[in-house]
Amino acid sequence: MSVVDGLTLFIQQVINGLRVGSVYALIALGYTMVYGIIRLINFAHGDFIMVGAYSLFFTVPLMISAGMPAWLSVIIAVAVCATTGVLVEKLAYKPVRAKGTKMSALITAIAMSLFLENLAQTLFGANPKQVGTIFSLPMLLGFSGNTLLTILIGVVVMVGLSLYVKYTKGGQAMRAVSEDKNASMLMGINVNRIITRTFAIGSGLAAIASLMYIVQYNQVTNMMGTMLGLKAFVAAVLGGIGNIPGAMVGGLVIGIVESLSKAYISPLTGGIITSAFSDAILFGILIIVLLVKPTGIMGEKTGEKV
């Protein structure tokens, strides 16, 4: 393999890493936003991707047969996921939060995850389903057009979210509530409404992530959210859980690490460690982050001044 070929392969792998990384980043954002606002790891969040993917599975053919562009299905998927997220919050988390401890809320989140996975299996079966083609772009500069578009969607969504959180009244209120609920109430902020909105936005992002995933893999199963969710969770912790830019950076880093380790770990170790170990490497990162810098890359300790 010549140097040029080697470099091309490397760039190819980085681009692939950015593609899968932007999927992780959008999912990680959901984890981090919800954690930021109610200090709960929403373990059902990964399964919202599955909900979004099933929504696409059912609505893409409808769109096509109605003569509309298939990608419009994502609007429905966002609405379905946002509704799912809000319902899970209102019906499961909020009552538990009012009565119980953080631990009971966490266990409820795991229960909701299992519930959604099993509900989907009962309703749609355990066999993978093929989703129709949502968009298919030609190669561009030697790269897959779909991949480039996926990265672009990820970037646009992340920039949009950052602007919302930084500059709008609603986004600022979200930050205020995540920092201090009582002080927010004193400002006249309806804290419950902000929490609901955060769930809606976080879950809506999961729907966009499922679109980006489906464009690449075309398949839906009831368990698809488990591994995606866990990896995105690692990304959120790596970036600093609760930190929005951190989730974005964490997602992209995890995507690139995964892509590069799959491509290079076997040749670099003479075949002793195969690419099958790439997931082990990712979760190894989680352990190292927790040991070395539990607050993550962008996370910071904020002490209260007296």
């Binding site: 600022q172 209120a173 920092e179 201090d180 002080a183 927010s184 902020i189 001044k305 007296v306």
Partner: peptide, 20 residues
Amino acid sequence: GRHVFSRMTVMENLRMGAYS
């Protein structure tokens, strides 16, 4: 204990004061 929003700017804090 003031309870200012410590990760937000002074201006953002004031804007939150005017939330209503």
